[in-house]
């Protein structure tokens, strides 16, 4: 599969995301924020970082970049889209995902290996995991607190749209320990921790993150 990774000005983890895509056996294509073109990819990843310097709000300006017009349109057609960290913030600002991400409740940047439970394995990004699988991947954020009103939280929990939840302590004040969510259709996933940093034993806490990138083939080609 061809997986596009968008680079915004200030993206940091685009190259790691491309590498994770290749380690999982796919072809990685670099996409540029200023282009109105997805170059025929089968799926898109919005990587972590500090796009547009996090000015205004994290992801608020990236949302209006030319490539996002194409991403929003493709997501509407069912294309798999994964937003990691800053990418998750961009997806929330784009209203492709519910809720928003605000400053960590303890007001400090957090960087650690984080244990997660994968709760929704019915997405193109999580199909390779067993339901309830517990994984460890790096987490690094300053504004990773997932918030939404109680009605929205009840709805996404009721519809099984919590993709991942924090285990062994909530690192950032996210409501109901939510680390990742998906849209109604299940093709768009946002995740605050970084599976792309856990795809090889040489670096990171292991290879628990690889499932996010391997899942694509299992689901889309099935």
């Amino acid at each position: 599969m061809k997986v596009g990774v968008v680079t915004f000005p200030g993206s940091l983890d685009d190259v790691d995301a491309q590498r994770a895509v290749r380690v999982a056996g796919h072809e990685a294509l670099a996409l540029w924020h200023g282009d109105h073109d997805l170059r025929g990819v089968d799926a898109v990843i919005l990587p972590g970082g500090f796009s547009y310097g996090d000015y205004l709000r994290c992801g608020a300006i990236s949302r209006f970049s030319p490539v996002m017009t194409e991403v929003v349109e493709a997501a509407g057609r069912g294309m798999p889209v994964l937003g990691i960290c800053n990418g998750f913030q961009i997806l929330c600002e784009s209203h492709l995902l519910p809720g928003a991400l605000i400053r960590n409740d303890h007001r400090r940047f957090v960087c650690r290996d984080q244990r997660l439970r994968i709760e929704d394995t019915d997405t193109p990004w999580t199909a390779a995991y067993a339901p309830g699988a517990e994984i460890t991947v790096p987490l690094k954020n300053g504004e990773g607190g997932f918030v939404a009103d109680a009605e929205t939280l009840d709805r996404i929990e009721g519809e099984g749209r919590v993709v991942a939840r924090y285990l062994d302590g909530n690192p950032n004040g996210s409501l109901r320990d939510i680390a990742g969510v998906t849209n109604e259709r299940g093709n768009v996933v946002g995740l605050m921790p970084h599976p792309e940093h856990a795809v090889e034993d040489l670096t990171g806490p292991g290879t628990d993150g690889l499932g996010f990138f391997v899942s694509l083939a299992e689901r889309v080609l099935a």
């Binding site: 605000i102 960590n104 409740d105 007001r107 607190g145 918030v147 004040g173």
Partner: peptide, 14 residues
Amino acid sequence: MPKPEILDPQGKAV
């Protein structure tokens, strides 16, 4: 302004 029900960590620090 952050909505009343949204935690405001910066306000809390002040």
